[in-house]
């Protein structure tokens, strides 16, 4: 049965040709549909935020405090909807419409932390809380410091 034939069967498509084939066969993201959904979901989340601001103003807070309180409330809502297992469904539908608002930031905090609870409360929940929030705070705070320093020297 021994039959040591020489090599030859190798696919005759070059990596360059394959790249264009792969592009041709890979379905594109449905950009128009995604954009429309992102617009509506993002818009509605911001409207909810606006209503909460307005309610805080009616309750007697000044505009700036009302806006801060509304941000905290939205974070609470985003975190709770993630815990209830609803936010990932909103995200699947709304894409960036539910990622970009502050509720999406809350989602990115709770989702990994909750899932790593089985790895303990310190190295699981505590550490994973900052999987996405960490980079956001690092780049956000660092940028604000650079802005502050530049502002100091310009004025």
């Amino acid at each position: 049965m021994a039959n040591q034939s020489s090599r030859q069967p190798t696919i005759t498509v070059t990596p360059e040709q394959y790249k264009s084939l792969a592009q041709q066969y890979t379905p594109k993201p449905t950009v128009v549909k995604n954009v429309v959904r992102a617009f509506f979901v993002g818009g509605i989340i911001c409207v909810i935020g606006q209503i909460i601001i307005n309610l805080f103003v009616i309750a007697g807070l000044n505009r700036i405090d009302a806006s801060t309180a509304a941000t905290a409330t939205m974070i609470f809502l985003g975190a709770m909807l993630t815990g209830l297992g609803v936010y990932d469904e909103i995200g699947k539908f709304g894409g960036a419409g539910s990622i970009v608002p502050i509720t999406g930031f809350a989602n990115s905090i709770v989702a990994p932390a909750m899932e790593f609870k089985r790895e303990g409360y310190v190295l699981g929940v505590g550490a994973k809380l900052f999987t996405v929030a960490g980079p956001v705070l690092v780049y956000g705070i660092a940028t604000s410091i650079v802005v502050g320093i530049v502002y100091f020297f310009l004025h």
Binding site: F39, G42, G43, V100
Partner: peptide, 13 residues
């Protein structure tokens, strides 16, 4: 709020 918020999210999408 709806229009500005929606448009900012569209940039993200």
């Amino acid at each position: 709020a709806f229009i500005v918020g929606g448009l900012i999210c569209v940039i993200g999408q």
